[in-house]
């Protein structure tokens, strides 16, 4: 564990050295997401100018939901972006074999191989949104609440990563896994808004099937004192179970790969 942590640190250091070499590229990448997010928030703001509340949620409350989701997603974006391109960049080219002849875990190697700085912008935006919504909503700055919010974002990030790991593993069979990953990943758009405004079926899907709800709606409800039951505490457990399932599936895919090769 300590070995992997220090190795990750070294991978990260090398990555930043490269990024600093391409300073302009780094700045554009890290800030491009800011513009995308700004457009999303502007749309929300325009809508909320017309209707003061959406399904009983105020603009600031919606920003909290949006911010929690954005921060969660940024974790996947920063640390697990290579899952998107595993088929195209590693399996098709045979580059994945390189991981298998090294004495470290191939999944660790894949993830550590490329920290994606584009996610930094998302992380900053998400955090700023949560902080500003927190302030304007007058949520008390209790250690419990802060800890809860941090844990919620980490669990949300883990859910994003686990779902991408599940879908990226299909690359071992179909090579080009991006459409599968995208199909599932895009469902997170729903979770940018409170689940309570959707049909029961969609609510259930985003809670039990593709549980992005735990990255935004449930923790926001808890912080706002809205009663949605015990589910506000389920985020970390859901994340853990999903990670385990995804990792088992990954191992299964890996076994298939060693049977067939690329």
């Amino acid at each position: 564990m300590a070995r992997y942590a220090s190795l990750y640190g070294l991978f990260l250091l090398q990555r930043f050295k490269v990024l600093l070499e391409y300073r302009l590229n780094f700045l554009i990448g890290a800030s491009s997401t800011v513009f995308v997010q700004a457009a999303g928030i502007a749309t929300l703001w325009v809508v909320m100018r017309q209707v003061p509340s959406l399904n009983g949620w105020s603009f600031d409350e919606l920003l909290l939901v949006y911010g929690l989701l954005t921060a969660s997603r940024s974790i996947e974006h920063m640390f697990a972006d290579n899952l998107w391109t595993i088929g195209r960049q590693y399996i098709r080219s045979g580059g994945f074999d390189r991981f298998l002849v090294r004495p470290i875990d191939p999944l660790f190697h894949l993830l550590a191989d490329r920290f994606n700085h584009d996610g930094i912008g998302n992380f900053v935006i998400g955090t700023l949104l949560v902080v500003s919504a927190w302030a304007s909503l007058g949520i008390p700055l209790l250690p419990l609440y802060v800890l809860y919010a941090v844990l919620a974002v980490l669990s949300g990030g883990a859910i994003f990563i686990a779902l991408n790991l599940l879908t990226a593993t299909t690359a071992f069979w179909i090579v080009e896994s991006v459409p599968v990953t995208r199909a599932v990943h895009e469902m997170h758009e729903f979770a940018k808004y409170p689940l309570s405004m959707y049909h029961k079926g969609i609510q259930a899907a985003l809670t039990w099937l593709i549980p992005y709800g735990f990255a935004s709606f449930y923790p926001a409800s808890y912080l706002l004192g809205r009663d949605v039951g015990w589910l506000v505490w389920a985020g970390p457990a859901v994340a853990l179970v999903l990670l385990l399932v995804a990792y088992r599936f990954w191992l299964f895919g890996l076994r298939h790969y060693s049977g067939t090769g690329s």
Binding site: D97, L100, V101, R255, S258, G259, G261
Partner: peptide, 11 residues
């Protein structure tokens, strides 16, 4: 294919 089995990539 032989080399891949010798290196442990393929079973």
């Amino acid at each position: 294919t032989t080399i891949k089995m010798l290196t442990g990539i393929l079973a």
